[in-house]
Design a protein around this nucleic acid. Sequence first.
DNA 1: GGGTGTTGGGAAAGCGCATTCCCACTGCAT
DNA 2: ATGCAGTGGGAATGCGCTTTCCCAACACCC
Lengths: 365, 365
Amino acid sequence: MAASTLTEVARLAGVSPATASRVLNGSARKPGPGVSERVRQAAETLGYIPNAQAQALAKSSSGLVGLIVHDIADPYFSAIARGVQEVAREQHKMVLLATTGGTPADEKEAVAAFAARRADAIVIAGSRSSRPEDEQANAELAAELDRYCRNGGHVGVVGQAIVGAGALDGYHLVEVPNEPLAAELAGTLAASHAGHFVIIGGPEGLITSDDRIRGFQSGLASAGRPEAEVLRASFNRAGGYEAGLVLAERIRDARKAETANEGEKPDLCIFAANDVMAIGAAAGLRSQGFRIPRDALIAGFDDIETLRDFRPALSTVRLPLEDIGRLATLSTVGSGALGGADGNHDDGAAVTGQVTLRRSTEWTP
Amino acid sequence: MAASTLTEVARLAGVSPATASRVLNGSARKPGPGVSERVRQAAETLGYIPNAQAQALAKSSSGLVGLIVHDIADPYFSAIARGVQEVAREQHKMVLLATTGGTPADEKEAVAAFAARRADAIVIAGSRSSRPEDEQANAELAAELDRYCRNGGHVGVVGQAIVGAGALDGYHLVEVPNEPLAAELAGTLAASHAGHFVIIGGPEGLITSDDRIRGFQSGLASAGRPEAEVLRASFNRAGGYEAGLVLAERIRDARKAETANEGEKPDLCIFAANDVMAIGAAAGLRSQGFRIPRDALIAGFDDIETLRDFRPALSTVRLPLEDIGRLATLSTVGSGALGGADGNHDDGAAVTGQVTLRRSTEWTP
DNA sequence: GGGTGTTGGGAAAGCGCATTCCCACTGCAT
DNA sequence: ATGCAGTGGGAATGCGCTTTCCCAACACCC
């Protein structure tokens, strides 16, 4: 028993396929009530399920929105994914998921796959890379996206523009003010912390990471502080952990040299370029017997949901992740629907964050 | 410039569409090298992207696998999703995501949508419900799945069988031994905890929750302990938090009555039916000034990744979530591919868990 | 009552591709 | 020279649906 087709339904109802199509799927023309009832009846008895592929082919719109993330199990991405999913549901679209680990080559492949499926929109989250070795893959990604846009697709990018992608119609950006927010965080921390700062960042060339680092440095500079040293590690918990181990070593050495300053206010304040790294760093330090904020202060970035139950409460910059996902999706799938008077405005949605101080940067004697 | 079609490529290459199709997409027949080169060349210049919809329609196989979860931002589900995604990638399939909040009606809808898209397989994670008010929706879900299977689809269910679904071909179950594992956990805890037990469970009728509760009770019984009281709350962090507040009240009252037993071993051991509830409960207790394990012991279930950084380290039952996702997907999408001598064996994959004791249930004076 | 709308329905032409035939042509043995 | 299998390519059909176009029937108004 293969799935029954519209034609079968039509035959059973004694009408033409055209009519059946009109009653079963929203059409401008509404057939008479008698006919409609018969058709619906027939569809019911046959257990008719319309073939979305065929529909998509016929009206060239698939009802699909593609989502590209680095890792769906990362709280940062899964929060965004939730937002995307919500909007998709509201708009009666389905979400196609692709995880790439952040590799531009894989991202390009994902875009191609989405394009092949004629996804109505593509949302691409996760930091772009500006590393030299990724240059070619990035260019290819940009080209792929351009082509997709030119063919009428909409793409929504979270964070920062794709390197090399043109300012095409259908190209939307949800800008995240990483740099100014990081600067603000630095300023705030500098006001209460007299010691020195160290930054744990992702690999050089990860734009999100680089932006945050640059912002933090400039914030420090504005506060009259010297530039902070930057430790590079992978942009996840494991990277944070490693960096934490390195820093633990440092603290130990410093203590040895300066003859035990336990009980004093810690000299070190760590800024990790995202929350999962911060958590990793805290874990690394803890594994060496150090405590936050007793032995070092630490702040992250993103305010992922996980932080809610992390101790000590982690200072961070709150980003409305779910909204970011929603916005990125709305700006793409919505742009066709709610285009009011002027449809063509490049609605680069912007998002605001919020420096959030918590216990991990508060030292109390 | 609409996306170019196979026909256009063929024309440019000076061959028939049939030939173009043969060279661009793997066919049994390999055209000559000269022709092939011309076609590939033409495809390149035109930036040809095959229309997956049309392909799917023509060969009736979409390369899609549908994934149904309650909430993609829940660590439990996102871990499973990661596993699913991995296998999908390996098998060159894309995953379609649907989140339902656990409502059977929505799940049914999602299945229908997947079926409409002719997904090759559907993986459905998240506890089934056996509540009376969900009975009809459940039946409809089962019917929808049956139909999907009968039409040649494969479905993989995580956890427990769908109520009312037949033992069809193409119906695969990744069984999670919730009950025995919960029993084992109860036994282990009973060995070291002399006080009494309370269970925080999801709403009555959530099968996963009910299984774990039943298992825990039977484990207690085997250890000669009385049945534990069961607090019902929603099956997420918020539910756990509420229950935590209730228990805080209890502890306070008990202390008042029995004249301060601070410093003594806590009398209460809490079993939460999953980790996020356990975390919520811990947060609730903490908000009232109580500490784990000082004032109460607590254990969860699942061993979600988040636990890694949760303090106190939470006792739980480790479940290989990512593997579960992998298995569920493999058993469905793989069953067509790696069907050896006998293709029809009902490979109900099983998974093993592991009681994992950590600090949250260890009281030290 | 014959025009002119207006409606309700069907016929048919694709959407872009895979695939089954079918044909022309080659090389080889007879 | 004639037969044959084998081979490389094209024509045509169909996947399941939407949509335009067309036709019949019916009501309406002068």
